[in-house]
Design a protein around this nucleic acid. Structure first.
Lengths: 236, 236
DNA sequence: CAGTATCCTCGAGGATACTG
DNA sequence: CAGTATCCTCGAGGATACTG
């Protein structure tokens, strides 16, 4: 981003962070995403050239270093990049409270929400064996996903991996997003019929503890509560 | 800013705040700036049309309302806008630590730094009478400012208002910026000869308590200390 | 997979003049 | 002062093809 011509900490921060997509790239990297193609998959709509340009710029600004790992080139956050966690948290918290209405249908990408869910597992509550959770996302086209959770690895399959299934979620994408974002409790979603949940015997009690949901969930809940109160006040 | 197509609190926050100049406009309004022309003066380089467009957008997003006061149209932050204070503070703190090198000479606008200083006074430490502080900013062209501090008003004059002067600061713009940003203590600036400070008798002891300096000063100091340690390590 | 190179379009915003 | 209207330029970035 072109500079503001001001010797001011906020202006300097905004210069580094203000380019389109930059903050979302940082969000992904704070979640542990390290590879170019993985960034592309988590950022639908970004083009290769923009992603490459942003990663170069982030290296020049000292937030990211490019290295190698087993799977090829890997981008890692520096100390400066890691210290953006409070910034991302502050903007996301504000966004959840004040810029978060109902989703546009085009924003409800089932692939994406299943990926998001799969990286916010509460590992400490999961059994020490392999667990498979199936998601059936209804809509104009039904999408199926199998979350294969191994003690030290998680993968998402779009075909039955054949290990058997511990639990099946069946809902539309909108409902799944609201559950992930913490606005809708599993039990409430089931009661209202928006979610069908089938579990293997013995799993039902633990299932709800396996998922950590979004780190913005508390702010999303507050924002939703505030909007509900306001709507009721305007009606009454 | 065009949307990201993601139903994510961070993406939604970034959509509202990510346009060029938007965060700096918010910074000014958090400092109490309410009028169009005042925003223009605090944001050198912004054009009328961009400022007008941003203010319209901020109203549409619900961060700002347009009203009237004694001096004409006035823009005020809503509750949503006021809650951006932690966001501005987080980005500025990060910027001070990780994106704040030496200033480009073009960034050292004497008008601006005197305005900044004048709105971070420690009112509780100022006497209950009118106080006048003169700033003489040296450089290719010498600029003079008189800060006229009344118990309930502060104004900046570029001609001697004729009230007499309680203290005179004389330094170049670079030094004045570093003092404002908290990197350079008044006493240290004097000792090193970068600042000449003349006071009326009886004022010298209090003078240093009159100024609150930048709210990012602690982060700027930490950032400068970190860079100094790093530079020394690289030398040794 | 992990990008680069090239071409092309469109929209952001600067400059300038004008208005209530 | 507090903006709006108009014109014009330039750069961001999308599409596509290509490379190690």
């Amino acid at each position: 981003m072109r500079g503001y011509g001001q010797y001011c900490p906020l202006a300097k921060g905004a210069e580094v962070l203000g380019d389109r997509w930059t903050l979302l790239i940082i969000r992904e990297m704070l979640h542990g995403v390290r590879h170019f193609s993985e960034l592309e998959r988590f950022l639908p709509g970004i083009s290769k050239s923009v992603l490459a340009q942003r990663l170069r710029q982030l290296q020049r600004s000292g937030l990211v270093v490019r290295g190698k790992d087993e799977q090829g080139p890997a981008y890692l956050l520096t100390e400066a990049g890691l210290e953006l966690r409070p910034v991302v948290q502050a903007i996301g918290t504000w966004g959840a409270r004040w810029a978060f209405g109902d989703p546009d249908p085009a924003e409800l990408d089932p692939d994406l929400v299943v990926r998001w869910i799969s990286r916010h597992l509460a590992r400490e509550n999961l059994p020490a064996r392999r667990v498979v959770v199936q998601f059936v996302v209804t809509g104009s086209a039904i999408r199926r996903y199998w979350l294969v959770i191994e003690p030290d690895d998680v993968s998402i399959c779009v075909h039955d991996p054949g290990f058997g299934v511990d639990a099946v979620f069946r809902s539309d994408a909108n409902t799944l997003y609201h559950i992930y974002l913490g606005e809708l409790a599993l039990s409430e979603a089931q009661r209202s019929g928006r979610l069908e949940l089938d579990c293997m015997p013995g799993v039902a009690r633990q299932l709800s503890t396996w998922f950590a949901w979004s780190s913005f969930a508390p702010a999303v809940r507050e924002g939703a509560a505030r909007r509900a109160i306001k709507a009721r006040a305007e009606q009454g």
